[in-house]
Amino acid sequence: MKRRTLLRASVVGAGALAVSGSLWESALAAPAQNATGPYGALQAADANGIRLPAGFTSQVVARSGQVVSGTSYTWHGAPDGGACFADGAGGWIYVSNAELGAPSGGASAIRFNSSGTATSAYRILSGTDRNCAGGATPWNTWLSCEEVPTGRVWETYPLSGSGGTAVVRPAMGRFNHEAAACDPVRRAIYLTEDMSDGCFYRFLPTTWGDLSSGTLQVLRASTATSGSFTWANVPDPDGSPTATRNQVSGAKRFNGGEGCHYASDTVWFTTKGDNRVWQVNLAAGTYELAYDDNLVNPGPAPLTGVDNITGSTFGDLYVAEDGGNMEICLITPDDKISVFLRISGQSSSEITGPAFTPAGDRLYFSSQRGTSGSSSGGITYCVTGPFRR
């Protein structure tokens, strides 16, 4: 039985399936392995320098320092984490962070009509510091996270039309924030920390939908790559004078937390320092490796520079590379990994902000530094095609 099949079986019905230790040991023994992708081999690079499977096409949506086509708005530099929101009128909005130092950091949004044409673009957050990744909430706000030692989470309002007024959420902790993922079942928001000895957190709002107050917790575990875990309260979310990751004895350390994605009682997150994708079964209270580049046999490992992550409605995971071969790799629900796309001629960049439209038929992402290798050379793309849904 495949690991994610086992995971799903364990949460079907009124109660969770009791899983013995020996069964979990066998289930946890096989992170994703090389396989032919569900869409077949990559074709030659298109006019945008992107290699895609047959049937898929790419287009450039925006370039840093240039006006977004169809709008009067100049796109920000160093585009990073992103998400898509339904706009309530048949179209959607793509949000993108700007990973620039203060006061140039922040986030922007592009609104598209039902045919995918940009109709407006605007700033939703300004004056902040190194907004790297973040996460969308079920109430249609974007959590923009600052990747600095005293970084904060800012709640922004992309559906407001003009960006609204962003609000800082200090109760979610001050640390080297990276990504966020919302869990409406447990009413929790999971948070990654981009440090070589970082932690994995969850924030429990006092009232779901209101992030002004709540409890910050850290994951505790005693084993290396799989096993059970618990949560413990972080005494001082402000992280001063003691950093949040050093306040709780037994907090599990992760090497460079990056992207984070929640679906179906599971949260996945990536760690760039060891090229891993972690999978947390929230119903069973267990965690394991969904991918490790050292455990791909036979090699070579397709995914290196593990970074941002998102998922399709089908259950496929799409993991972007920071460096590597400038690829987005796909991990299927039966734990097979393959390359979905590769960007040519941009080896000094990284792929950021992968996000599907609400319909699941378009994938947005950025090359943070484009062909120039500079934060002023970012390019944001859209890929359209027969995605599994």
Rank of each mutant, 00 (worst) to 15 (best):
S20V: 01
A27V: 00
A29Y: 05
Q33M: 07
G37D: 13
G37V: 06
P38V: 05
Q43K: 08
A45W: 14
D46G: 13
R51P: 11
F56I: 10
S69E: 11
T71H: 01
H76V: 04
D80W: 03
G82F: 09
A83W: 12
C84E: 12
G91V: 03
Y94S: 09
S96Y: 10
I110N: 05
F112R: 01
G127L: 12
T128P: 03
G135F: 06
N140S: 15
V153K: 10
V153E: 02
T165F: 01
T165E: 03
G173L: 15
F175C: 11
A181T: 00
A188G: 02
Y190Q: 02
T192G: 10
M195F: 13
G198M: 15
F200K: 10
G209L: 05
Q217S: 09
R220L: 15
S228I: 03
W231H: 15
W231Y: 15
D236F: 08
D238I: 07
G239P: 11
P241Q: 14
T242V: 15
N255P: 00
N255C: 10
E258F: 05
D265V: 06
F269L: 06
T271P: 14
R276G: 11
V280T: 01
V280A: 04
E288W: 03
D293C: 09
N294M: 11
L303E: 02
T313N: 13
D335E: 07
K336V: 00
F340W: 10
R342Y: 02
S347I: 12
S349M: 04
F356I: 03
A359N: 14
L363C: 04
R369W: 10
R369V: 03
S375N: 07
